[in-house]
Structures are given as C-alpha cells and as structure tokens.
Amino acid sequence: MAGTTSDSGTRRDFIYVASGAMGALAVGAVAWPLVQQMNPSAAALALATTELDIGTIQPGQQVIIKHRGQPLFVRRRTPTEIKSAQSVNVASLPDGLARNAGKDAALPASDENRVIKTEWLVVSGVCTHLGCTPAVSTAAVLQGAHGGWLCHCHGSDYDTSGRIRSGPAPENLAVPVYSFMSDTRIQVG
C-alpha cells in the first residue's frame, strides 16, 4: 500500500488508504450475494437423471424428452443414416471434436465417438448457436441438406450424427452422459 511504503507516507495517508480499502471490501461483500442470487438455486442445481423406454421407437423415428428442463433427442437411425454419418471425413467438419460428455473431450468427431450403439443417437436438442430446438429431418419431411436437423431460427444444418455442417452454430450437438440399462431402456444423466 502506498501509505506504508512511500517515503512521504504519513499515518494520515495510511489511514486514508486503509479505510478506502475496507470500504471497497465492504462494497464487494455486499455485491457478492446480490450477484450470486441470480445463479441457479439449490433446487435447480439438484441433479436429475431421466429414464426412457426406447423399445417403441421405430427406425427413422426420433422422440424428444425433457431432461433438466431442456429438450433431448433420442433418434433411432436407419442404416442409410448411419452410413451417411460414418462416411463423413472428420477433417472437413466445422467442429472437429466429438462433444461427448461420456468420453474424452479431445476425441475427434467421428460418428463412433458420438454414440454407444450405432443405431441410437442421443443428443441435446439445444442448437449450439442460440438455443433453439432444431427440426428433425425425416424421409417424408426433409430438413436441411445433411439429413439430420435444421434449426429454423438461424439456419444451422446438422447431419445424422448431430454434427454441425453449415450455418452459424459453432459446435456439434452435445452428447450427454447416458447408459443402456437394457436393450430397450436408457438412463440419461
């Protein structure tokens, strides 16, 4: 502090700086709870897991479930969709990382790094651009050019592995932590 080290420092300078510092500390101490009250409350933080029966989902069909307040896509992919997801050159993707919370963060975005069983794709339904829910592309109603999802808000186009292919979204759709409890049941979270 200036008051204690400076040659010209007096007791008065020291008191001035010390009381100023205490005042700043007090302002900070008051501001902290006022800022922190905005963050998620204990109730929102309580972790939740969601179980889902996937036995009735047909190939080519997707269901949307609500997991921790947000949509989650569970899609049973057709052999064509799996093939198109696997045949992509990972080096050509806008986001080269797998974005799979259940695996190493540095893994490349190959299709096998984004699934547990190739038939099932489980990804967050939150567009990584600005949070809209992308529309699913089916054989009957095509959305976008890559057969996965198209976000109508700002035009982000995802492929059948949930990877961003074109548009403003910076990342692939996130894969949450999930596990197969049996062949027809998964647990998310």
Partner: peptide
C-alpha cells in the same frame, strides 16, 4: 447465460427477474 437464467435454460427464475 446461466447467471441470467437462474437455471440451465430459460425458466421460472428467468421470468421473475
């Protein structure tokens, strides 16, 4: 974003604030 929402998505706390 989380701080603004008061949750992990837009929800009741967001509406209130």
């Amino acid at each position: 974003a989380t701080w603004l929402w008061g949750d992990f998505a837009v929800g009741d706390p967001t509406l209130n604030r």
